[in-house]
């Protein structure tokens, strides 16, 4: 008996799905040119959800950092976009630049926040978000809770604006997901998964835990900020309360829990599920929120792995070549 083994990364499913993703991207590009208004503006909303879910999942699912304060970056992303635009930066450049500024700001924040552990980190992030909210309120441009509007966008006619915004959302979401994908494929991804499983053990094996967590923290801040800037582009009005509200973190947790925490595909799936639920049930008001809460509880009790986690466990299906699989075949 001579067991032979193979380590594989690419499976048939993942080969097919990468092609499907590429085709979807091309379809979305095509859509941006010819799609109708409603599709384009709803598309931006979906991209925002995907960004939020993917970055929260990167934090919680891969780096083991549960945050309920990601709305800090979401709000700051919108705030800096409006600030820069008011000081004369072209509006779409301001949106991109704003995410870079927020990512840069999140670096010093991470020095403080990453000293906190688990529950302390979660609550600490919430405090950080409230602090950012109050500081933004102090800016005379924002006029306290009343806020301000990104009227620079009105310089574009509605058609052009929609197409640019959709393309912007498509490209930035693809870039953020792509970056995360390559990050997870690299040595760094292996280190992250070790940290997720047990950060002390990972540290003892020579993984630089703090550095890895910091990179993910900054990455998640960038993703949150891009999402905030996009949301602002789609909604135009900036009222601090709506951007710095804790409900954003609740949505992120919902999407990731339902989709499947710790899986790349799960977060995207969760975002799509949330988007669909919102589209059809948001009009039910309070009952919609009660339904969301119930779904989150049911999922965390019955399917703690989420939809995708369950799929992976049952069928060993991996749509993206992340991680390596050991296949052993017995040859006589």
């Amino acid at each position: 008996m001579n067991p032979s083994y193979r380590i594989e990364r690419w499976t048939t499913a993942s080969r097919i799905s990468v092609w499907v993703f590429a085709l979807l991207f091309l379809a979305a590009c095509f859509l941006s040119q010819s799609g109708n208004d409603s599709l384009l503006s709803r598309g931006v909303v979906l991209f925002v959800y995907v960004l939020l879910a993917a970055t929260w999942n990167a934090l919680a699912g891969f780096a083991g950092l549960m945050s309920v304060g990601q709305q800090a970056f979401f709000g700051l992303g919108a705030y800096f976009a409006i600030r820069l635009s008011d000081s004369g930066v072209p509006v779409f450049a301001a949106m991109g630049l704003s995410a870079i500024i927020v990512a840069a700001l999140s670096w010093p924040m991470s020095i403080v926040m990453l000293r906190l552990k688990d529950g302390e980190f979660a609550i600490g992030m919430w405090v950080l978000a409230s602090l950012c909210h109050l500081l933004v309120n102090l800016d005379p441009l924002i006029q306290g809770e009343t806020g301000i509007s990104l009227i620079a966008l009105n310089a574009y006619d509605p058609e052009t604006r929609r197409v640019i915004l959709f393309t912007f959302a498509l490209v930035s979401t693809t870039a953020v997901l792509g970056f995360l994908f390559f990050l997870l494929q690299s040595r760094f991804g292996t280190a992250l998964q070790a940290i997720r499983d047990n950060d002390e053990a990972a540290g003892s094996l020579g993984v630089n835990v703090l550095k890895a967590k910091r990179l993910i923290f900054v990455f998640a801040a960038f993703g949150g900020a891009i999402a905030g800037a996009l949301w602002l582009g789609a909604n135009i009005s900036f009222q601090p309360k709506t951007y710095f509200g804790v409900q954003w973190s609740a949505y992120m947790i919902f999407m990731v829990l339902v989709g499947g925490i710790g899986t790349f595909e799960g977060a995207i799936l969760g975002a799509i599920v949330f988007f669909i639920i919102e589209t059809f049930f948001a009009a039910f008001g309070v009952w919609y929120l009660i339904g969301l809460g119930t779904a989150a509880i049911v999922f965390s009790l019955v399917f703690p792995q989420g939809i995708w986690g369950t799929v992976v466990r049952k069928w060993n299906l991996h749509l993206l070549p992340i991680g390596r699989r050991l296949s052993i075949s017995n040859e006589k």
Partner: peptide, 16 residues
Amino acid sequence: TPETINPVADACEAAG
């Protein structure tokens, strides 16, 4: 209230 009107007015202004 501004919470209702401003976002709506902005959306209308942007869409013409």
